[in-house]
């Protein structure tokens, strides 16, 4: 039996917003197996980004436990990468320098870092923009650079916060395929937040549905369809409907 790469036990997090207590997350239990592709869907504001920040070690939970490879998360780890919802590029660094930042402190030589960064940039179709500054990129291009930065150091667990949200459907489809290819090649674990249920069904082994107020896990749906999955196949459509219904039911009940 292999150990889970990530385990969450009764994780809770609240914020004080305008003097009110907002329960961003309550009682989150979750386990990710190594090499598993998990998608996280849920309405806006239900705590998806908060959950990723906790797992990445950028924030600490108020209650519960987060274990990465069996050890408690106390801060960011090299074993866990995060692609932020906003692109988070440093405006004063060139595109390539931004990507190289993610390799800082690794054992690679400066040359190797540059090479890896360039390769990652090629992957997202922006080979010619290595020396551009972030302000010279469109929103979708910046998001692709952020993706390249997230992928460059090949973490065993990669958290992706709506990485394709600003992309046109063609680019999005291409990068989804690319992400699957990388995942198949690396055999790492992916935790992808998306508001696109179809994307979740197409990519993931398991789709977790989060409910809002307080943020909690409402359902988990295993997707056992063989890959590559076809966007307009009946099976994909059926699963999509099932998950969307789950989201709707909840919205009505709330």
């Amino acid at each position: 039996m292999t150990q889970d790469i990530l385990t969450l036990n009764a994780v809770a997090k609240h914020f004080a917003v305008d003097g009110r207590k907002v329960e961003a997350l309550r009682g989150i239990d979750l386990a990710l197996r190594p090499g598993e592709f998990t998608a996280l869907v849920g309405a806006s504001g239900c705590g998806k980004s908060t959950l990723l920040r906790l797992i990445a070690g950028l924030d600490a939970p108020d209650a519960g436990q987060i274990l990465l490879n069996g050890t408690q998360v106390r801060g960011p780890s090299r074993d866990c990468g995060l692609i932020f919802q906003d692109h988070r590029l440093l405006p004063w660094l060139s595109v390539l320098q931004n990507i190289e930042l993610a390799l800082s402190g690794t054992t690679h030589s400066a040359q190797a870092r540059q090479k890896l960064s360039q390769a990652s940039l090629d992957l997202v179709g922006l080979a010619d923009f290595a020396n551009a500054f972030p302000r010279q990129l469109s929103g979708g291009m910046a998001q692709r650079v952020a993706l390249a930065r997230g992928l460059v150091n090949r973490p065993p667990l990669l958290l992706l916060d709506e990485p394709f949200s600003a992309l046109d459907s063609l680019t999005r489809a291409r990068l989804q395929t690319e992400l699957l290819r990388i995942w198949a090649h690396e055999g790492n674990s992916m935790l992808l937040v998306t508001h696109d249920v179809e994307e979740a069904v197409l990519l993931a082994d398991r789709v977790i549905v989060l409910a809002a107020n307080p943020g909690r896990i409402q359902a988990a749906v295993d997707i056992t369809l063989p890959r590559p999955r076809l966007r307009n196949s009946a099976e994909v459509a059926a699963l999509k409907t099932l998950i969307l219904q789950g989201l709707d039911d909840f919205a009505e009940a709330a």
């Binding site: 990445a56 004063w92 930042l101």
Partner: peptide, 27 residues
């Protein structure tokens, strides 16, 4: 803060933090 967060996320050393984040950011 959202820029400084990258220092933690990428485990930037003192020199890199200075050269790549603090100095140009305050530039």
């Amino acid at each position: 803060a959202r820029h400084l967060e990258l220092i933690r996320l990428y485990h930037l050393g003192r020199l890199t933090t200075f050269r790549r984040v603090v100095l140009p950011g305050a530039g």
